[in-house]
Amino acid sequence: MRSFSHLNARTVSEAIAALVQFDGRARLNAGGTELFGALKDEFLPEYPEAVINIKSIKGLEYIKEEKGHLRIGALTKLSVLSESRLLRERYGALAEAAHAVAGPQIRNVATIGGNLCQDVRCCYYRYPRHIGGPINCARKGNGPCLAVNGDNRNHAIFAGRKCFAVCPSDTAVALALYDAQLVVVGPQGERQIAVRDFYTPIENLLQRTEIVREILIPAVTGTVTQSFSKFALRTPIDFAIVSVASLITLEDGICTDARIVLGAVAHNPHRALEAEEFLRGCRLDVEVSRQAGEFAIREAKPLSKNAFKIQIAKTLVSRAIFGQPAGFVLKGNFSETTSSTQMCSGKH
């Protein structure tokens, strides 16, 4: 990698001070599993002058239950989230989403903060400098989006604008399901941003001098069934082609509330509002779940080569609501998830 200064921050304020001092030309490093890919491939117009290690900040690794909320420290590792009993029992979609990220070695070091702040995976955007890149495009503020007329198999099928890269984060899909907030700290103090609003078509809302300190999840209550399933080809290295998280409240077999979020189909985790609306008041059966799948993709506008995602999204949504998931139903032995679509359901 090209040279950079390296600092170990001991506190959140030290990290912010260092970001300010480098005037935004520094990058935070948590697990490094995304950052070093970016620095090695040098696809961004600016190379950082400094890397600021935030693993040296004490006390940012926790999962805590508190009055009406679950709080997760930004440095909490994905392996810890996926194995947490509390999460498995009450926030199963998040545990499953954390488990769906990459392979074991990556989950052992990758953090939830880094997972949420990672950059997009568009093949043009990330094309490496050392094999003929980098390639300029709309997201880099230079030229049009190349995916529109090019290889857009992995791009958005909803609400594309300027840039059609999809939000790559698996945990963001589960967190959007719970209406989670990011607690972000910067030189001006602290603010909260809903995970659902965090991603815009061209970037995320984090300023160059800000750091994500924790994730705040409103407590999940009542009798709910939740699931997260991800369709990918080679799970340990591939990002989602489509993923779906669902949270269904049932009373006597009737759906009283439904939340459905699709991943890897838009620049943000995409709420399937029409499908949710349709499901309220329905008795769940095969036909209803099929129709919900149709509602979930009604607004989709695929690009030239990614209409196949619609079929996958439809199938994942109807399976999330009713019937057998393609993969594995979570029943307590959590280490046994191996198939490419994973699903969990828990009642409490």
């Binding site: 390296h6 490094g32 070093f36 890397v51 290690n53 040296s56 070091v109």
Partner: peptide, 11 residues
């Protein structure tokens, strides 16, 4: 188990 190619020695 971790990946040594994604880990900085100084850390």
């Amino acid at each position: 188990a971790i990946l040594s190619c994604m880990t900085l020695t100084v850390e």
